[in-house]
């Protein structure tokens, strides 16, 4: 199943998933990354491994416009370059000490990450608004079947509770798929609640199917 056929931009979170001053882990095509939002609201992404001694940066803390590793406090700017090494406060860290910055774009309430330099913008999600994100313990194929929808470039389009929805799917691990749920812009809060409930049904069916296939 093609999940991101043409665009180098991978959708990995909803804007609302990452408040100011927080960091979360994600997986970009099997590569562990950290996505964080600075105090001023700027989203950033980089590899999820501190160049010092390999600690996961997603366990770190955001302070101002920087991300610090929780182990020894090494501090990285939005360009991924190390700015401060607390054990050696007089050192000006060279830009070669960095955490592998990635390109990020925030558009239509979705956070997109690209592995390589990209000139273009992420795909537009016209007429849709983000509802919520979910992780399914299921393969994308099982989610497609369970939703009764059709496969599109970045996931699945389906109708749920009478409303057009779009599920952006990204495999995070075997039998683990991140699902960003988008709904028609005009969907009422009541309908949103019904869709959320219906999603649980899709999840149960998809996870059940994946489990059956796994056991086979």
């Amino acid at each position: 199943m093609r999940l991101n056929a043409s665009s180098p931009w991978i959708p990995l979170a909803l804007s609302g998933d990452i408040p100011n001053g927080t960091v979360i882990p994600a997986t970009l095509c099997s590569k562990p990354i950290a996505i964080w939002r600075s105090q001023s609201g700027q989203v950033n992404a980089n590899g999820n491994r501190c160049p010092h001694r390999g600690m996961r940066l997603s366990h770190g803390f955001v302070r101002g416009e920087t991300l610090s590793c929780i182990y020894h406090g090494w501090r990285f700017g939005q360009d991924g370059a190390c700015q401060h090494i607390p054990a050696h406060p007089d050192v000006v860290p060279p830009a070669s000490i960095n955490c592998g910055p990635l390109q990020v774009a925030e558009q239509d309430g979705v956070i997109w990450v690209a592995e390589d330099q990209v000139e273009s913008q992420p795909p537009r999600l016209d007429g849709l608004k983000p509802l919520r994100s979910l992780v399914f313990c299921a393969e994308p194929e099982a989610i497609l079947t369970a939703s009764g929808g059709t496969e599109v470039d970045l996931g699945v389009e389906a109708t749920l509770a009478g409303t057009r929805i779009c599920l952006l799917l990204q495999g995070q691990a075997p039998a683990e798929t991140l699902c960003l749920v988008l709904v028609d812009q005009a969907t009422s809060p009541k309908a949103c609640a019904e869709i959320s409930r219906a999603l649980e049904g899709i999840r149960r069916r998809a996870e059940g199917e994946t489990e059956k296939r796994g056991a086979a």
Binding site: R49, P51, H52, R53, G54, Y71, I97
Partner: peptide
């Protein structure tokens, strides 16, 4: 911590 085992070659660390 990555990698899980202790590196005896610090080439990917600082």
């Amino acid at each position: 911590q990555i990698p899980a085992r202790l590196p005896l070659d610090p080439g990917m660390e600082t």
